[in-house]
Design a protein around this nucleic acid. Structure first.
Lengths: 242, 242
DNA sequence: TTTCTTAGTGTATTTGGTACACTATCTAAA
DNA sequence: TTTAGATAGTGTACCAAATACACTAAGAAA
C-alpha cells in the first residue's frame, strides 16, 4: 500500500498525465571569415509564416537528447564529430501553436562553407545562413533560444578553443582575431589579444607567409594539435559535456 | 503543397511521434550551519527500491517548467520566493523504468530549518536531508543530476550571493566562511576570505557581538540589503535566470 | 620613390589571487 | 588569580592576468 502510493507520487498517474512532444532545436552558428551567422529555415506554420526559425526536429523514441541533436546536425548539414552542447530546456505552455512541445536547445559552431546547401531536404526548405543582426523577429520562441545560445557560445569561446575547426589549416593571427571579434561582437586590442593567444600555446608558427595580399603579408599559424589534445581532448573525442 | 511539407518537416507527424512524460527534479540543497545536504525521498520503484531519489514530479499541462519547479519546491518544502535555476535537461531513453520520461533539473538552496518535515505528504514519503557524502547510490540517474547541479551551485556561489538567505539575521564572518567551505567542499584561507567578502561590500557590521560562546566572541554582521538590491536584484525579485 | 594598407611589437599600471603567522579576547579550569 | 584552551582578528609580500596605449615594418600599387 505504502509502496503503491509512492509509485503514484513519484510518477503520478503517468498515463493520464501530460505527455509532451520533445524536440531539439539546434542553434548552428557559422563563421565565414567575416561574420557570425545562424542556420535558419523559413517557417511555414501560422502564425509565424515567413519568419526565420531554428533547425529542429522531434526526438525519436530510440535516441537520447544528445543523439537527437547529433542526428539533426548531421541530417541538416552533413557534419558529424563536432562539439555540441546542450544550452537548456524551453517549456512555455504556449510556445508551440499546435501542441505542447518542450524543446531542448543545443548549439554548434561550424565553418559556413562546410555546410553545402545541395542537400535535397534542406534546399527544399530554404535553409540559409542568416546574419545575427537580421534576426530580430523569429518564429516560436526561437529568438529567446538564440539569445541564450549566443550567450553560452560567447562564454565558451573564452573557456574552450571552439574556434579550432573554424579556420583553414594555415591562418594568420589577424584572421583569428577577426573570428573572436565576430563571435564576441566586440573589438579587441591587438597586442593584448596576441599576448593571450601566445600564452595559451594553442597555435604554432608554420614558417610560411600570406601570399597575394596587397599589403604586408602576415605570418601563418596552425593549431597546435598536441596542446589541444592535452588540455581539451573532450572537445575532440566526445561531442558532449556534462 | 510546399507549405504542408514544411509543417510536417518542422513538426513531423506530431501525433504519431514520441510523446514523453515531462518531469522536473528539484535538487534542494540545504545548509544547517555545518554541512551541505540534499532533500531526498526513499524510492519505492523497482529496481531502485530503498535508494534515495531527488524530489520530482510531472509537469502539469497548464504550467511551464519554471512554474513546475516553483510548485514542487513549494509543495514539498513550503518555501516560495526563492531563487531557482534550471540546470539542464536529462533525457536518456532508459532513464526511467516504466516509460520515457525527460526530466528538467533545477536547484535551490535553502536553510535546513526552513523545511519543516511536518507536512503530511512529505512525512508519508520519508523526505529527509541527506548529507552529500552519503549519496553514492541513488535511484534513476539522480546521482548524475545531483553532480551536475552541485557543479552549477558551486559556480554560482562565487558569482552570486546565493548565501544571503542561509544565515540568521546576524552572523559572524566565521559563520559565513563555514558556509562557503561546506558548499564548496574545500577549506579557505581566513584572511583571503575576509578580504574578498570585504571587497564585495555585501555585509555590514551591526555593532554587536556573539554571546555565550566559550571563547572570544565574534563581531556580528548582517546582509547589506542596499548593495544586494543594487547589484543582484534578480536574485530577489525574479526567481529565474535566463 | 612615395603612398597606402595592414602586420607586428613592449612596457607600465592595475587588479585580483595566493601564501603565510602572530596577537587578541573570552571562558573555563586549575 | 593565574593559566590553558579555543576561536577571532589582522597585514604584507609576491605573482599572474588584464588593461591601456603608439610606433615601426613590410609589402603592393600608383
Amino acid at each position: 500500500m505504502i509502496e503503491r502510493e509512492n509509485i503514484n507520487f513519484q510518477l503520478r498517474e503517468i498515463d493520464e498525465h501530460l505527455k509532451a512532444a520533445i524536440s531539439v532545436d539546434c542553434v548552428i552558428f557559422g563563421y565565414d571569415q567575416s561574420e557570425l551567422k545562424v542556420l535558419t529555415l523559413e517557417c511555414n506554420m501560422a502564425p509565424y509564416v515567413g519568419m526565420p526559425s531554428l533547425i529542429g526536429d522531434l526526438v525519436n523514441e530510440d535516441e537520447n537528447l544528445d543523439q537527437a541533436a547529433t542526428r539533426i546536425l548531421y541530417e541538416r548539414t552533413g557534419i558529424s564529430d563536432i562539439f555540441l552542447e546542450q544550452v537548456k530546456a524551453f517549456g512555455e505552455t504556449d510556445r508551440h501553436p499546435l501542441e505542447r512541445v518542450v524543446t531542448i536547445a543545443y548549439y554548434a559552431l561550424i565553418k559556413v562553407d562546410e555546410f553545402k546547401n545541395d542537400n535535397g531536404a534542406l534546399r527544399q526548405h530554404q535553409a540559409k545562413w542568416s546574419p545575427l543582426n537580421q534576426l530580430e523577429e523569429m518564429a516560436f520562441d526561437h529568438r529567446l533560444i538564440l539569445e541564450s545560445s549566443l550567450h553560452l557560445l560567447r562564454k565558451r569561446l573564452i573557456e574552450y578553443p571552439l574556434w579550432m575547426k573554424l579556420l583553414p589549416k594555415y591562418f594568420s593571427l589577424p584572421d583569428l582575431q577577426n573570428l573572436f571579434e565576430a563571435i564576441l561582437g566586440t573589438t579587441l586590442d591587438k597586442r593584448n589579444f596576441r599576448k593571450k593567444i601566445s600564452n595559451l600555446e594553442l597555435v604554432r608558427e608554420v614558417g610560411k607567409m600570406q601570399k597575394d595580399v596587397p599589403h604586408r603579408p602576415a605570418k601563418l599559424y596552425a593549431v597546435n594539435e598536441k596542446k589541444l589534445k592535452k588540455d581539451f581532448s573532450f572537445l575532440l573525442q566526445n561531442p558532449f559535456i556534462n
